[in-house]
Amino acid sequence: MESNSNQVHTLSVTDLCKSFAGLKAVDGVSFSLQTGEVFGLIGPNGSGKTTLINLITGLLPATSGTVHVDETKTTGKPPHRVSRAGIARTFQTVRLFRELTVLENVEVAAVSMGFPRREAVSTAHDLLVEMGIEGYETRLAGEIPFGYQRKLEIARALAMKPKFLLLDEPAAGLNEEESDLLLEQLRTIPLSKHVGVLIVEHDMRLMMNLCDRLHVLNYGKTIAHGTPAEVRTDPRVVSAYLGSAG
């Protein structure tokens, strides 16, 4: 469950497809990422990014294709098994346990992954300090400022000691200052926590600054992939974005 800090893990997505009543939301997407890396998933609205995250986490069953964490196939497994294989996520709309305290939110994630209670509490405390939410431990999660709720969600996901962290629009609803601060924190996470980060985000400035590699979707299909510099100038990407804007 806990990743060995020296070992490199790989998340491989192979030819993943998802159809909703004939509409192909995700159409033959393949990529892989490794621990220590930040991998960005971009594309216009409705291009299948969140669906892809839902497929990887087991929340939606894939129509075809596979997802592996190292040698372990996670497609077809229930969400709690997928998370135990080492995948944690956050949500586009913050989905904290609003009636639990800030500390309990992080603690529940750690204990459900099988860590002993005492260790879970100390992990939770450490993560809250690292994410800059200390001092709010006993407050209800639904009552803390929105920017902190976003960070709390990331702390909660990290408490599961995942191999891969999937962030669905972590900067949505944050102002520029908060978004910059988040960027700094996200930059350090892959190496300090030894996780691979897959991030979906509309904030292009943040994505270009943060990601090692980008993968561009449009209508569920991969239209480009490469380093931020390569992707930025790719004519297909430019046309997809201009097309969707126009």
Partner: peptide, 17 residues
């Protein structure tokens, strides 16, 4: 705590293992 979490957001709780 797990039951309270599940009563609040069941799917999210499952995603947490």
């Amino acid at each position: 705590i797990a039951m309270r979490a599940a009563a609040d957001k069941f799917t999210t709780t499952r995603l947490m293992g």
